[in-house]
Nucleic acid binder design. Sequence first.
DNA 1: CTGAAAGCGCTTACAG
DNA 2: CTGAAAGCGCTTACAG
Lengths: 341, 341
Amino acid sequence: MAAIGDVARLAGVSKATASRALSGRGHVAEATRRRVEVAAAEIGYIASPAAASLVTGRTMNVGVVIPFVNRWFFGEVLEGIERALLEAGYDLTLYNVGSAGEDRDRVFDFFLARKRVDAVIAVGVDLTERETASLDRREKPFVSLGGSGAGGARLSIDDRAAGALATEHLLHLGHTRIAHLAGEGAASTPESVPGCRREGFLEAMAAAGHASDADAHIVEAEMTMPGGYTGALQLLGHPGRRPSAVFAASDEMAFGAIRAAERLGLAVPGDLSVIGVDGHEYAEMFGLTTIEQYPGAQGRLAVDVVLHLLGEDAVADPLPDSGAPLPTRLVVRSSTTAAPR
Amino acid sequence: MAAIGDVARLAGVSKATASRALSGRGHVAEATRRRVEVAAAEIGYIASPAAASLVTGRTMNVGVVIPFVNRWFFGEVLEGIERALLEAGYDLTLYNVGSAGEDRDRVFDFFLARKRVDAVIAVGVDLTERETASLDRREKPFVSLGGSGAGGARLSIDDRAAGALATEHLLHLGHTRIAHLAGEGAASTPESVPGCRREGFLEAMAAAGHASDADAHIVEAEMTMPGGYTGALQLLGHPGRRPSAVFAASDEMAFGAIRAAERLGLAVPGDLSVIGVDGHEYAEMFGLTTIEQYPGAQGRLAVDVVLHLLGEDAVADPLPDSGAPLPTRLVVRSSTTAAPR
DNA sequence: CTGAAAGCGCTTACAG
DNA sequence: CTGAAAGCGCTTACAG
């Protein structure tokens, strides 16, 4: 395995000069630099990251903690992060951990605690105090995207506002019997993403004078298509007080709700209006009205913040206000319409 | 940052002994071992992977090359790999590269060529000669899961057989006008996954004496739900010779086909039978008949093979014949029925 | 069972 | 602009 000594010998310079020529740090005569590069290319030299990081203290590696890989939002975020990191010359080490448990503890206590990653990005994870403390102790920069927990940079859309806006869209169309397909844990963890969306729903309903109705019309389910399907079946099963509109906490749930409605012989949007949150790539095909967000861009932004925290000057654009919520947009399609009169 | 010297000093032993005690390699008196462990815990010592790998030559890190993260099959494989690697104490470095291009070259020529990963797992990527040669030159063990290309261990289901079986299921139900929603590149790359499934379809059709029909009934599309939707719309649009059954190259395509049929007023399975491949977690909800495969288990198996190649003796079970295809199973649900007469 | 020493492959002050 | 030397934090023969 070619080492820098081999390159130096071939180019007739010292290891120090070879190192400087290849890394671009420090001054090297143009001719020398070229000679070293030729030598390196000739023997296929590539620096050992381990050796380099041992002395620089930088691993050029970022850890990403993410509970799902196979749900649209998370997959998009991950792809966005991966691409941005690769462009910046960083590796991405993936930790696919979900809810609390042994695996999760092991990731935070061992894997992330080592000097293997320069920083960590947590996506959609509600960090415990112990976890943020652990990260802080190691002085590891970290940014949290769409999750809760103290410390670190925090990036997210305004989930409460998104929930309120979705609900207001339905109210504006004249609906009054509006149900909410909430994500799991929405009621018990008001700080979480599903919790905030539910809060937004309740607020909008209360503001419109439908407070008492609202509570009875919430069903929690997994934020997936089958989750939405099952939840919607439950919601639409009571013939008497069947809602005329559903606000689903995610587009995947909304797709399931649409399917459930069809299965029950209810036309969408004739008998039931459905709105989601996400801007899923399938939304167009389903004609789904939704509050779009941009997970790919969010992932890239998280990387920008991390690089900034790591002092990489390559980060061109000034970062957005860390306080400001990430952009969203209401996109109206054919799944919502005026309430039946 | 606590180093092993600190632990050694605190425990009153040499660095060598501290290292042996912590790693479990070499003999250390039980009492000494315990003392070292207490000392390490006290100052929160965790070994630097960079320093360790510099001397051992092992990074305890495996690179995973995967074109998508957000398609069910790939996401499941990735989760399976991640879990198995974590259990074995390895990290997973993710390279989300798709079709040929600059990014892809950069991953193979730079990222994977460094001594940062001990091995690589490629999922669903058709490796070029140059890429396999590059991996070989670095003497990096690699296993390829569901992709084509020479060299390395190769794991996959028998896609040709799966395609044939799916088609035979429909033939067996009396269908003769059977269409195939193929994945992109199926016709141009017969070695690829969509290519093999298409071959299986053609073979089964030919064996049943419907050869001439078959070719006209193939449409290629992205292996996603919108891809299947669009493709099926095209397939079902010709009223005269409308097929009575569709074999979709993936479950996601099949879901799209089901939706397209419904949109056109065709009942599934009354007017159209649909079968897919994958065993997607939504298949049950859609009542989809499919050829199941087990991507999570496939991912774990790929890790077993890699660990075996790396000489980890911890790999308990003997590996399956490297020649034998991975398991699949025909699961009949409500999306297929006898051909209308 | 334990320790002193060498060395893995780099980079970085420090001189010149 | 370039080189000699030290050192990052480990592990591993080699002695004892």
